[in-house]
Amino acid sequence: MINMKRRTFLKGSVAAGAVSAAVGAGLLTPRMVLAAWPTNAFQAKSVDSALDALSGSHALEGSDKISIRAPDIAENGAVVPVSVTTTIDGVESISILAEKNATPLTASFVLGPTTEGFVSTRIKMGKTSSVIAVVKAGGKLYSTGKEVKVTIGGCGG
């Protein structure tokens, strides 16, 4: 319940000056304010609308400075290990999307200034699709993709 209050507080006070006061007082860093869970982005049914909801844009620029490590064939769609590494400077966040999942956005990692451009996790994939890594740096979105074949889907069932 405490958490619910915190969430309401964060959402409700963005318009009011409470947050900026808190930021000024050093209670909240801007990063923490941004961290309110983006419901719309996670419920979006397409890659474009998920990115719109998450970052306000889906203008992706292909980049060879991002690499995705994921299996070519995932036997079990419920557990697909995915690692994203990028050498882009000033990375703000790394998001991982599975293009053909019912809701493509799987995760978005907000990185601190001292954090390296690397994240690794395990995702669920409903069917064979492309895994897209979106790196936000300097207000722009860079992306790369990798096709992962799924033999047994990991959503529903």
């Binding site: 860093t29 990063r31 923490m32 961290a35 869970w37 983006p38 996670f42 419920a78 557990v79 697909v80 290990p81 690692s83 599975a98 999942n101 809701t103 956005l105 799987t106 995760a107 978005s108 990692f109 907000v110 990185l111 601190g112 001292t114 954090t115 390296e116 690397f118 994240v119 690794s120 996790t121 395990r122 995702i123 669920k124 994939m125 990991g154 959503c155």
Partner: peptide, 19 residues
Amino acid sequence: AVMTALWGPAISKNPYLSF
């Protein structure tokens, strides 16, 4: 905060995370 992960339901059961 060095890392904040926002996760949807499409993260695997018993999640693993590395950074």
